[in-house]
């Protein structure tokens, strides 16, 4: 299984991810409809992409009264079945991270579904700030960087 890995140090705030996300899911370039958001702090000193982390014990899934949120066995993504969703928004309250949101145009909630296993935000990110990696080894690169330092700095 794979997981999105976000390295905010590499993010330039270009918002290609937000466009790719909205285009994949809504067929329109529209950051207002993106399931991943980039947050800008202190006059642009920091830019931090954030989206659903696909909790194992997902609050949204457990809170849903109509079982509209299910687990994709292949990707582990918690997916919203729009045909079942009644737009009650309980999941948006339950999610501790704010990554499930209501869309007033459709009357349903939306959240990241990892694009069925090929997340477009990661595919388009020009700097590698968003990658899609082995879920068991999201720390691999940082661990490797630490090993390089421990070894005296030569990569």
């Amino acid at each position: 299984m794979k997981s999105l890995l976000i390295d905010a140090d590499k993010c330039t705030d270009c918002l290609q991810c937000e466009m790719a996300c909205s285009f994949e899911n809504e067929g329109v370039f529209n950051p207002a409809r993106s399931r991943i958001k980039v947050f800008e702090f202190e006059h642009g000193r920091r830019a931090v992409p954030y989206t659903c982390t696909q909790c194992d014990e997902a609050w949204c899934l457990h809170a849903c009264p109509v079982e509209a949120i299910t687990i994709n066995a292949a990707t582990g993504a918690k997916e919203v079945n729009a045909e079942v969703c009644v737009g009650c928004k309980v999941c948006t309250i339950a999610c501790p991270f704010g990554t499930v949101n209501y869309n007033e145009d459709t009357g349903k909630v939306v959240k990241c579904d990892l694009c069925g296993g090929d997340p477009q935000c990661a595919a388009v990110c020009p700097t590698g700030a968003i990658t899609y990696v082995d879920a068991n080894w999201t720390g691999y690169q940082r661990m490797r960087d630490s090993a390089v330092r421990a070894d005296g700095g030569a990569s």
């Binding site: 330039t12 270009c14 918002l15 290609q16 642009g44 830019a47």
Partner: peptide, 10 residues
């Protein structure tokens, strides 16, 4: 401190 993109800029 860092570099920064305008909207959509790679």
């Amino acid at each position: 401190l860092t570099n920064k993109a305008c909207f959509g800029c790679t």
